[in-house]
Write a protein that binds this DNA or RNA. Sequence first.
DNA 1: GAACAAATGTACTGATCTGTAAATAAAGTC
DNA 2: GACTTTATTTACAGATCAGTACATTTGTTC
Lengths: 186, 186
Amino acid sequence: MRPSKRDELVQKALKVFYRNGFHATGMDMLVTETGVSKTSMYNHFRTKEDLILAVLRLRDEHFRNWLYRRMEERADTPRDQLIAMFDALEDWFEEPGFRGCMFIKASAEYQNADHAIHIQSAEHKRMLQVHVGELARKAGLKNPDALARQLLLLKEGAIVTAHLQHTQAPAQDAKAAALALIELAE
Amino acid sequence: MRPSKRDELVQKALKVFYRNGFHATGMDMLVTETGVSKTSMYNHFRTKEDLILAVLRLRDEHFRNWLYRRMEERADTPRDQLIAMFDALEDWFEEPGFRGCMFIKASAEYQNADHAIHIQSAEHKRMLQVHVGELARKAGLKNPDALARQLLLLKEGAIVTAHLQHTQAPAQDAKAAALALIELAE
DNA sequence: GAACAAATGTACTGATCTGTAAATAAAGTC
DNA sequence: GACTTTATTTACAGATCAGTACATTTGTTC
Protein backbone atom coordinates (compact mmCIF):
# COMPACT_ATOMS: atom_id res chain seq x y z
CA MET A 1 0.00 0.00 0.00
CA ARG A 2 1.77 3.09 -1.24
CA PRO A 3 -0.01 6.27 -0.26
CA SER A 4 2.79 8.47 -1.45
CA LYS A 5 3.80 8.41 -5.11
CA ARG A 6 0.52 9.39 -6.63
CA ASP A 7 -0.31 11.89 -3.90
CA GLU A 8 3.17 13.30 -4.11
CA LEU A 9 2.72 13.86 -7.82
CA VAL A 10 -0.61 15.61 -7.32
CA GLN A 11 0.86 17.78 -4.60
CA LYS A 12 3.80 18.87 -6.72
CA ALA A 13 1.64 19.36 -9.79
CA LEU A 14 -0.63 21.61 -7.75
CA LYS A 15 2.22 23.99 -7.04
CA VAL A 16 3.25 24.18 -10.68
CA PHE A 17 -0.28 24.65 -11.99
CA TYR A 18 -1.01 27.28 -9.34
CA ARG A 19 2.11 29.24 -10.13
CA ASN A 20 2.08 28.84 -13.87
CA GLY A 21 -1.50 28.27 -15.02
CA PHE A 22 -3.05 25.22 -16.67
CA HIS A 23 -2.63 25.64 -20.40
CA ALA A 24 0.76 27.27 -19.88
CA THR A 25 2.02 24.23 -17.98
CA GLY A 26 2.96 21.34 -20.22
CA MET A 27 3.39 17.76 -19.15
CA ASP A 28 7.09 18.05 -19.95
CA MET A 29 7.40 20.91 -17.49
CA LEU A 30 5.69 18.78 -14.87
CA VAL A 31 8.18 15.99 -15.58
CA THR A 32 11.17 18.24 -14.91
CA GLU A 33 9.61 20.14 -12.00
CA THR A 34 8.22 17.14 -10.15
CA GLY A 35 10.91 14.61 -10.98
CA VAL A 36 8.18 12.09 -11.76
CA SER A 37 8.63 10.39 -15.10
CA LYS A 38 6.13 10.96 -17.86
CA THR A 39 5.19 7.32 -18.11
CA SER A 40 4.42 7.23 -14.40
CA MET A 41 2.20 10.23 -14.77
CA TYR A 42 0.18 8.63 -17.52
CA ASN A 43 0.10 5.50 -15.43
CA HIS A 44 -1.72 7.31 -12.66
CA PHE A 45 -3.77 9.69 -14.80
CA ARG A 46 -5.17 8.88 -18.20
CA THR A 47 -5.02 12.50 -19.38
CA LYS A 48 -3.83 15.92 -18.33
CA GLU A 49 -7.43 16.77 -17.55
CA ASP A 50 -7.66 13.89 -15.07
CA LEU A 51 -4.54 15.16 -13.35
CA ILE A 52 -5.99 18.66 -13.12
CA LEU A 53 -9.18 17.28 -11.60
CA ALA A 54 -7.15 15.43 -8.99
CA VAL A 55 -5.20 18.61 -8.30
CA LEU A 56 -8.43 20.55 -7.81
CA ARG A 57 -9.78 17.91 -5.45
CA LEU A 58 -6.66 18.22 -3.32
CA ARG A 59 -6.81 22.01 -3.44
CA ASP A 60 -10.44 21.99 -2.38
CA GLU A 61 -9.65 19.76 0.58
CA HIS A 62 -6.63 21.80 1.65
CA PHE A 63 -8.22 25.18 1.21
CA ARG A 64 -11.50 24.47 2.99
CA ASN A 65 -9.72 22.75 5.85
CA TRP A 66 -7.32 25.63 6.18
CA LEU A 67 -9.99 28.32 6.03
CA TYR A 68 -12.42 26.66 8.44
CA ARG A 69 -9.69 25.93 10.97
CA ARG A 70 -8.38 29.46 10.73
CA MET A 71 -11.82 30.91 11.31
CA GLU A 72 -12.29 28.72 14.37
CA GLU A 73 -8.89 29.62 15.76
CA ARG A 74 -9.57 33.30 15.47
CA ALA A 75 -13.07 33.46 16.91
CA ASP A 76 -15.39 31.53 19.22
CA THR A 77 -18.91 32.45 18.11
CA PRO A 78 -20.31 31.74 14.64
CA ARG A 79 -20.88 35.46 14.16
CA ASP A 80 -17.27 36.33 14.86
CA GLN A 81 -16.06 33.42 12.77
CA LEU A 82 -17.83 34.92 9.78
CA ILE A 83 -15.93 38.13 10.33
CA ALA A 84 -12.70 36.26 10.98
CA MET A 85 -12.95 34.78 7.48
CA PHE A 86 -11.67 38.08 6.15
CA ASP A 87 -8.71 38.14 8.54
CA ALA A 88 -7.88 34.68 7.29
CA LEU A 89 -8.05 35.99 3.74
CA GLU A 90 -5.61 38.73 4.66
CA ASP A 91 -3.16 36.15 5.98
CA TRP A 92 -3.48 34.33 2.68
CA PHE A 93 -2.99 37.46 0.58
CA GLU A 94 0.19 38.22 2.51
CA GLU A 95 1.79 34.90 1.66
CA PRO A 96 4.59 35.35 -0.88
CA GLY A 97 3.23 32.75 -3.28
CA PHE A 98 -0.32 34.11 -3.32
CA ARG A 99 -1.71 34.01 -6.85
CA GLY A 100 -5.45 34.25 -6.43
CA CYS A 101 -8.08 31.54 -6.32
CA MET A 102 -7.19 28.36 -8.16
CA PHE A 103 -10.83 27.61 -8.93
CA ILE A 104 -11.52 31.00 -10.43
CA LYS A 105 -8.46 30.52 -12.61
CA ALA A 106 -9.49 27.00 -13.55
CA SER A 107 -12.94 28.15 -14.58
CA ALA A 108 -11.36 31.02 -16.49
CA GLU A 109 -9.29 28.60 -18.55
CA TYR A 110 -11.99 25.94 -18.93
CA GLN A 111 -15.07 28.02 -19.52
CA ASN A 112 -17.61 25.60 -20.90
CA ALA A 113 -20.42 25.08 -18.42
CA ASP A 114 -20.37 21.34 -18.95
CA HIS A 115 -16.61 20.92 -18.68
CA ALA A 116 -15.62 18.71 -15.75
CA ILE A 117 -13.04 21.22 -14.54
CA HIS A 118 -15.57 24.02 -14.58
CA ILE A 119 -18.16 21.92 -12.78
CA GLN A 120 -15.70 20.90 -10.08
CA SER A 121 -14.68 24.53 -9.53
CA ALA A 122 -18.31 25.52 -9.10
CA GLU A 123 -18.75 22.69 -6.62
CA HIS A 124 -16.00 24.09 -4.43
CA LYS A 125 -17.78 27.42 -4.24
CA ARG A 126 -21.08 25.71 -3.50
CA MET A 127 -19.59 23.93 -0.51
CA LEU A 128 -18.23 27.18 0.85
CA GLN A 129 -21.69 28.66 0.46
CA VAL A 130 -23.25 25.84 2.46
CA HIS A 131 -20.74 26.19 5.29
CA VAL A 132 -21.01 29.97 5.53
CA GLY A 133 -24.79 29.78 5.35
CA GLU A 134 -24.73 27.29 8.22
CA LEU A 135 -22.61 29.64 10.31
CA ALA A 136 -24.98 32.54 9.61
CA ARG A 137 -27.87 30.35 10.71
CA LYS A 138 -26.11 29.31 13.90
CA ALA A 139 -25.39 32.97 14.59
CA GLY A 140 -29.11 33.65 14.46
CA LEU A 141 -28.76 36.20 11.69
CA LYS A 142 -31.66 37.22 9.47
CA ASN A 143 -31.83 35.67 5.99
CA PRO A 144 -28.76 33.53 6.63
CA ASP A 145 -28.47 32.15 3.09
CA ALA A 146 -28.80 35.53 1.42
CA LEU A 147 -26.27 36.97 3.84
CA ALA A 148 -23.89 34.10 3.15
CA ARG A 149 -24.11 34.76 -0.58
CA GLN A 150 -23.30 38.42 0.01
CA LEU A 151 -20.35 37.64 2.25
CA LEU A 152 -19.00 35.26 -0.36
CA LEU A 153 -19.34 37.89 -3.06
CA LEU A 154 -17.12 40.08 -0.89
CA LYS A 155 -14.70 37.19 -0.47
CA GLU A 156 -14.44 36.44 -4.19
CA GLY A 157 -14.14 40.11 -5.00
CA ALA A 158 -11.39 40.53 -2.44
CA ILE A 159 -9.43 37.56 -3.80
CA VAL A 160 -9.64 38.75 -7.38
CA THR A 161 -8.76 42.32 -6.47
CA ALA A 162 -5.88 41.35 -4.20
CA HIS A 163 -4.42 39.27 -7.01
CA LEU A 164 -4.87 41.98 -9.62
CA GLN A 165 -3.54 44.85 -7.56
CA HIS A 166 -0.93 42.96 -5.55
CA THR A 167 -2.06 44.24 -2.20
CA GLN A 168 -3.76 42.67 0.78
CA ALA A 169 -5.91 45.78 1.35
CA PRO A 170 -9.09 44.28 -0.16
CA ALA A 171 -9.30 41.90 2.80
CA GLN A 172 -9.92 44.76 5.21
CA ASP A 173 -12.26 46.56 2.80
CA ALA A 174 -14.28 43.37 2.55
CA LYS A 175 -14.17 42.87 6.31
CA ALA A 176 -15.58 46.33 6.95
CA ALA A 177 -18.40 45.73 4.48
CA ALA A 178 -19.07 42.29 5.96
CA LEU A 179 -19.25 43.70 9.46
CA ALA A 180 -21.81 46.27 8.35
CA LEU A 181 -23.95 43.63 6.63
CA ILE A 182 -23.79 41.32 9.64
CA GLU A 183 -24.78 44.08 12.03
CA LEU A 184 -27.77 44.88 9.87
CA ALA A 185 -28.81 41.23 10.02
CA GLU A 186 -28.72 41.03 13.81
CA MET B 1 -6.73 56.53 -43.93
CA ARG B 2 -8.00 53.03 -43.25
CA PRO B 3 -9.82 52.76 -39.98
CA SER B 4 -11.14 49.33 -40.66
CA LYS B 5 -8.84 46.39 -41.30
CA ARG B 6 -6.77 46.55 -38.16
CA ASP B 7 -9.73 47.48 -35.96
CA GLU B 8 -11.80 44.76 -37.56
CA LEU B 9 -9.12 42.21 -36.73
CA VAL B 10 -8.94 43.37 -33.11
CA GLN B 11 -12.70 43.26 -32.83
CA LYS B 12 -12.94 39.73 -34.19
CA ALA B 13 -9.97 38.55 -32.15
CA LEU B 14 -11.67 39.90 -29.04
CA LYS B 15 -14.65 37.62 -29.57
CA VAL B 16 -12.48 34.56 -30.05
CA PHE B 17 -10.23 35.27 -27.07
CA TYR B 18 -13.24 36.03 -24.88
CA ARG B 19 -15.00 32.83 -25.83
CA ASN B 20 -11.98 30.57 -25.92
CA GLY B 21 -9.30 31.96 -23.63
CA PHE B 22 -5.85 33.30 -24.46
CA HIS B 23 -3.48 30.35 -24.34
CA ALA B 24 -6.15 28.07 -25.77
CA THR B 25 -6.54 30.31 -28.82
CA GLY B 26 -3.79 29.84 -31.37
CA MET B 27 -2.94 32.22 -34.16
CA ASP B 28 -4.11 29.60 -36.65
CA MET B 29 -7.53 29.56 -35.04
CA LEU B 30 -7.66 33.34 -35.31
CA VAL B 31 -6.82 33.03 -39.00
CA THR B 32 -9.74 30.73 -39.69
CA GLU B 33 -12.19 32.45 -37.34
CA THR B 34 -11.46 36.02 -38.41
CA GLY B 35 -10.73 35.40 -42.08
CA VAL B 36 -7.72 37.66 -41.77
CA SER B 37 -4.57 36.10 -43.14
CA LYS B 38 -1.71 35.28 -40.85
CA THR B 39 0.68 37.52 -42.71
CA SER B 40 -1.67 40.46 -42.27
CA MET B 41 -1.91 39.78 -38.57
CA TYR B 42 1.81 39.85 -38.11
CA ASN B 43 1.87 42.95 -40.25
CA HIS B 44 -0.28 44.79 -37.73
CA PHE B 45 1.01 43.15 -34.55
CA ARG B 46 4.55 42.04 -33.91
CA THR B 47 3.52 39.27 -31.54
CA LYS B 48 0.47 37.53 -30.14
CA GLU B 49 1.01 39.48 -26.92
CA ASP B 50 0.75 42.77 -28.80
CA LEU B 51 -2.53 41.62 -30.30
CA ILE B 52 -3.86 40.67 -26.87
CA LEU B 53 -2.91 44.07 -25.50
CA ALA B 54 -4.80 45.75 -28.35
CA VAL B 55 -7.78 43.51 -27.67
CA LEU B 56 -7.74 44.47 -23.99
CA ARG B 57 -7.56 48.16 -24.87
CA LEU B 58 -10.65 47.80 -27.04
CA ARG B 59 -12.43 45.78 -24.40
CA ASP B 60 -11.66 48.40 -21.76
CA GLU B 61 -13.06 51.15 -23.96
CA HIS B 62 -16.19 49.21 -24.88
CA PHE B 63 -16.92 47.95 -21.40
CA ARG B 64 -16.45 51.21 -19.54
CA ASN B 65 -18.46 53.14 -22.12
CA TRP B 66 -21.23 50.58 -22.00
CA LEU B 67 -21.36 50.43 -18.19
CA TYR B 68 -21.24 54.18 -17.61
CA ARG B 69 -23.91 54.84 -20.22
CA ARG B 70 -26.12 52.12 -18.81
CA MET B 71 -25.81 53.53 -15.31
CA GLU B 72 -26.76 57.01 -16.56
CA GLU B 73 -29.71 55.68 -18.52
CA ARG B 74 -31.10 53.88 -15.54
CA ALA B 75 -30.76 56.59 -12.91
CA ASP B 76 -30.46 60.35 -12.57
CA THR B 77 -28.62 60.94 -9.31
CA PRO B 78 -25.08 59.75 -8.60
CA ARG B 79 -26.40 57.75 -5.66
CA ASP B 80 -28.91 55.87 -7.78
CA GLN B 81 -26.37 55.39 -10.54
CA LEU B 82 -24.17 53.50 -8.12
CA ILE B 83 -27.05 51.18 -7.39
CA ALA B 84 -27.96 50.93 -11.06
CA MET B 85 -24.49 49.52 -11.72
CA PHE B 86 -25.76 46.20 -10.40
CA ASP B 87 -28.82 46.23 -12.64
CA ALA B 88 -26.47 46.82 -15.55
CA LEU B 89 -24.44 43.83 -14.39
CA GLU B 90 -27.58 41.72 -14.39
CA ASP B 91 -28.27 42.70 -18.01
CA TRP B 92 -24.74 41.62 -18.85
CA PHE B 93 -25.02 38.30 -17.02
CA GLU B 94 -28.20 37.53 -18.94
CA GLU B 95 -26.54 37.91 -22.31
CA PRO B 96 -26.10 34.49 -23.97
CA GLY B 97 -22.39 34.99 -24.61
CA PHE B 98 -21.54 36.07 -21.06
CA ARG B 99 -18.27 34.48 -19.97
CA GLY B 100 -17.10 36.58 -17.06
CA CYS B 101 -14.66 39.46 -16.93
CA MET B 102 -12.03 39.45 -19.65
CA PHE B 103 -9.51 41.24 -17.43
CA ILE B 104 -9.86 38.79 -14.58
CA LYS B 105 -9.30 36.00 -17.07
CA ALA B 106 -6.34 37.77 -18.64
CA SER B 107 -4.70 38.27 -15.27
CA ALA B 108 -5.43 34.63 -14.44
CA GLU B 109 -3.54 33.47 -17.52
CA TYR B 110 -0.74 36.02 -17.29
CA GLN B 111 -0.05 36.11 -13.60
CA ASN B 112 3.30 37.79 -13.29
CA ALA B 113 2.93 41.19 -11.66
CA ASP B 114 5.24 42.80 -14.18
CA HIS B 115 3.64 41.26 -17.24
CA ALA B 116 2.19 43.88 -19.61
CA ILE B 117 -1.12 42.01 -19.87
CA HIS B 118 -1.45 41.81 -16.11
CA ILE B 119 -0.59 45.48 -15.68
CA GLN B 120 -3.13 46.55 -18.28
CA SER B 121 -5.84 44.46 -16.64
CA ALA B 122 -5.12 46.10 -13.30
CA GLU B 123 -5.30 49.51 -14.97
CA HIS B 124 -8.84 48.79 -16.15
CA LYS B 125 -9.93 48.07 -12.61
CA ARG B 126 -8.18 51.19 -11.35
CA MET B 127 -10.12 53.38 -13.76
CA LEU B 128 -13.40 51.84 -12.64
CA GLN B 129 -12.39 52.57 -9.08
CA VAL B 130 -11.73 56.24 -9.89
CA HIS B 131 -15.10 56.63 -11.64
CA VAL B 132 -17.11 54.94 -8.91
CA GLY B 133 -15.26 56.88 -6.23
CA GLU B 134 -16.13 60.09 -8.06
CA LEU B 135 -19.80 59.14 -8.14
CA ALA B 136 -19.76 58.36 -4.42
CA ARG B 137 -18.19 61.74 -3.78
CA LYS B 138 -20.80 63.53 -5.91
CA ALA B 139 -23.51 61.67 -4.03
CA GLY B 140 -22.18 63.18 -0.80
CA LEU B 141 -21.57 59.77 0.77
CA LYS B 142 -19.22 59.25 3.69
CA ASN B 143 -15.76 57.84 2.93
CA PRO B 144 -16.45 57.81 -0.82
CA ASP B 145 -13.25 56.02 -1.82
CA ALA B 146 -13.61 53.26 0.75
CA LEU B 147 -17.24 52.82 -0.25
CA ALA B 148 -16.25 52.65 -3.91
CA ARG B 149 -13.73 49.91 -3.13
CA GLN B 150 -16.41 47.93 -1.32
CA LEU B 151 -18.93 48.31 -4.12
CA LEU B 152 -16.34 47.13 -6.60
CA LEU B 153 -15.56 44.09 -4.48
CA LEU B 154 -19.24 43.24 -4.73
CA LYS B 155 -19.10 43.81 -8.48
CA GLU B 156 -16.06 41.57 -9.03
CA GLY B 157 -17.48 38.93 -6.75
CA ALA B 158 -20.77 39.00 -8.62
CA ILE B 159 -19.07 38.65 -12.01
CA VAL B 160 -16.94 35.72 -10.91
CA THR B 161 -19.84 33.98 -9.20
CA ALA B 162 -22.26 34.53 -12.08
CA HIS B 163 -19.72 32.99 -14.43
CA LEU B 164 -19.00 30.02 -12.18
CA GLN B 165 -22.59 29.20 -11.32
CA HIS B 166 -24.20 30.21 -14.61
CA THR B 167 -26.86 32.35 -13.05
CA GLN B 168 -27.54 36.06 -12.94
CA ALA B 169 -28.64 35.91 -9.32
CA PRO B 170 -25.39 37.35 -7.90
CA ALA B 171 -26.28 40.69 -9.47
CA GLN B 172 -29.26 41.12 -7.18
CA ASP B 173 -27.40 39.76 -4.15
CA ALA B 174 -24.71 42.33 -4.78
CA LYS B 175 -27.28 45.06 -5.35
CA ALA B 176 -28.95 44.37 -2.01
CA ALA B 177 -25.59 44.51 -0.23
CA ALA B 178 -24.63 47.67 -2.09
CA LEU B 179 -27.87 49.36 -1.16
CA ALA B 180 -27.29 48.58 2.50
CA LEU B 181 -23.73 49.92 2.39
CA ILE B 182 -24.83 53.10 0.61
CA GLU B 183 -27.61 53.77 3.09
CA LEU B 184 -25.14 53.42 5.92
CA ALA B 185 -22.92 56.01 4.24
CA GLU B 186 -25.66 58.59 3.88
C1' DG C 1 -2.39 53.27 -66.77
C1' DA C 2 1.86 53.33 -63.88
C1' DA C 3 3.39 53.08 -59.18
C1' DC C 4 3.00 52.01 -54.61
C1' DA C 5 1.09 50.04 -50.48
C1' DA C 6 -1.78 46.75 -48.31
C1' DA C 7 -3.60 42.13 -48.03
C1' DT C 8 -3.34 37.54 -49.58
C1' DG C 9 -2.05 32.19 -50.10
C1' DT C 10 1.13 28.76 -49.44
C1' DA C 11 4.60 26.72 -47.47
C1' DC C 12 7.78 26.52 -44.19
C1' DT C 13 10.79 26.72 -39.54
C1' DG C 14 11.87 24.93 -35.07
C1' DA C 15 9.83 24.40 -30.83
C1' DT C 16 6.41 22.52 -27.95
C1' DC C 17 2.02 20.14 -27.19
C1' DT C 18 -0.43 15.61 -25.40
C1' DG C 19 0.11 11.02 -25.34
C1' DT C 20 2.47 6.28 -26.42
C1' DA C 21 5.84 2.17 -27.21
C1' DA C 22 9.19 -0.73 -25.59
C1' DA C 23 12.65 -2.28 -22.91
C1' DT C 24 14.77 -1.93 -18.36
C1' DA C 25 15.28 -1.31 -13.33
C1' DA C 26 13.55 -1.60 -8.59
C1' DA C 27 10.64 -3.20 -5.14
C1' DG C 28 7.61 -5.88 -2.51
C1' DT C 29 5.08 -10.66 -2.14
C1' DC C 30 4.68 -15.42 -2.09
C1' DG D 1 14.62 -16.98 -5.47
C1' DA D 2 10.76 -16.65 -8.92
C1' DC D 3 6.84 -13.56 -9.82
C1' DT D 4 4.26 -9.49 -10.12
C1' DT D 5 3.70 -4.79 -9.74
C1' DT D 6 5.50 -0.21 -10.21
C1' DA D 7 8.66 3.25 -11.82
C1' DT D 8 12.14 4.39 -14.91
C1' DT D 9 14.66 5.97 -19.35
C1' DT D 10 14.64 6.86 -24.04
C1' DA D 11 12.65 7.62 -28.09
C1' DC D 12 8.99 8.60 -30.70
C1' DA D 13 4.21 9.94 -33.09
C1' DG D 14 1.25 13.35 -34.83
C1' DA D 15 -0.66 17.64 -33.93
C1' DT D 16 -0.26 22.32 -32.91
C1' DC D 17 2.37 26.33 -31.22
C1' DA D 18 4.30 31.31 -32.57
C1' DG D 19 6.36 33.43 -36.16
C1' DT D 20 8.58 34.03 -41.15
C1' DA D 21 9.77 33.99 -46.39
C1' DC D 22 8.24 34.81 -50.71
C1' DA D 23 5.66 35.44 -54.47
C1' DT D 24 1.02 37.04 -55.84
C1' DT D 25 -3.08 39.68 -55.87
C1' DT D 26 -5.81 43.55 -54.72
C1' DG D 27 -6.83 48.37 -54.12
C1' DT D 28 -5.71 53.34 -53.97
C1' DT D 29 -3.47 57.43 -55.68
C1' DC D 30 -1.34 60.20 -58.85
